[in-house]
Amino acid sequence: MPLPSHAFDAVSWHNRKADKYGRVEFGSNHYQAGGRWQRRSVLVAARWDRVTLHDPDDDTVIAVHPRAYGRAESVRDPALVVHQLAAKPRAWGESEIRADFPDIVRRWFDERDPDDLAASLKAVSAACRDCSFDAVAKAAAALIETRKPERLHAHQLTPHARRLDQGQDTHYAHEPDLSVYDRFLDDHE
């Protein structure tokens, strides 16, 4: 007999309720669903290599995590946590993703006043909607190192992080030379 035309998807489905941190327990491990899912029901699709969390109402994917086979592991995506952190920036000092940022970004966040910290975390959160957390963290480090801004902005982070996600080597070391435009304007006045 011929093989089936579609691969068999070996998956088991489970309903779970997220805890107050937006984590879903499956097996003996916790998987991060995000702050929006605190104390809400989540549909868990468990495969041999990954655990996918779904919205039970419309089956949209909330998060995809590698499956953990150890005991009492917490599997999280920093991008999901940064969204929570942007809503509660005073939790920065005790955040579970604080260590996921490069040293320069961590120190820079520590030195910000509450308003600049809140705005910068929101910018990181917005950039994480379009790019990977690692790329956004690297883009933030590059911005801080070269431009020393008072606060981060998503319109600066996102394009740089996108280029990093695409494998392009980008840096902010050289600002564009705009002096040619100054000379042009001087000649035409």
Rank of each mutant, 00 (worst) to 15 (best):
R90K: 11
W48K: 11
T60P: 00
Q84V: 02
E73M: 14
V42A: 00
E189Q: 12
H83P: 00
F8W: 07
V81Y: 03
A91L: 13
A154H: 08
A10V: 03
R107F: 13
L121K: 06
R112N: 02
A137P: 04
D49C: 01
P149L: 08
A127E: 07
A91Y: 03
R147Y: 07
S5R: 11
V11E: 14
W13V: 13
H14C: 06
F101W: 15
A87L: 12
D19Y: 06
L3F: 08
D177I: 08
A141G: 14
V81S: 11
E94F: 09
Q84I: 00
P159D: 04
D110S: 12
A91N: 10
A18E: 04
D169M: 08
Y21I: 00
V61I: 15
T52H: 06
P176S: 09
A63P: 04
V82K: 08
I104M: 11
R106E: 11
H6D: 10
D100Y: 03
H153M: 14
R47P: 03
G27I: 00
Q84H: 13
F109A: 09
D115S: 11
A161G: 09
W13E: 05
W92S: 03
E25D: 02
R129Q: 13
A63H: 05
V64G: 01
S120V: 03
F26A: 05
R129P: 01
R36H: 11
R162N: 06
A173E: 15
R183L: 11
F26M: 11
R90P: 00
R71W: 12
D182E: 15
T60C: 01
V44Y: 03
R36N: 12
I62K: 03
G35D: 10
A91G: 03
D59I: 09
R162G: 01
A91I: 01
G35H: 11
L121Q: 06
D134T: 08
K17T: 15
S120Y: 09
L80E: 08
D77E: 14
F101T: 01
I104D: 09
D169Y: 05
A72Y: 12
W48G: 04
H65P: 06
P102Q: 04
F8I: 12
A135C: 05
S28P: 00
A87C: 05
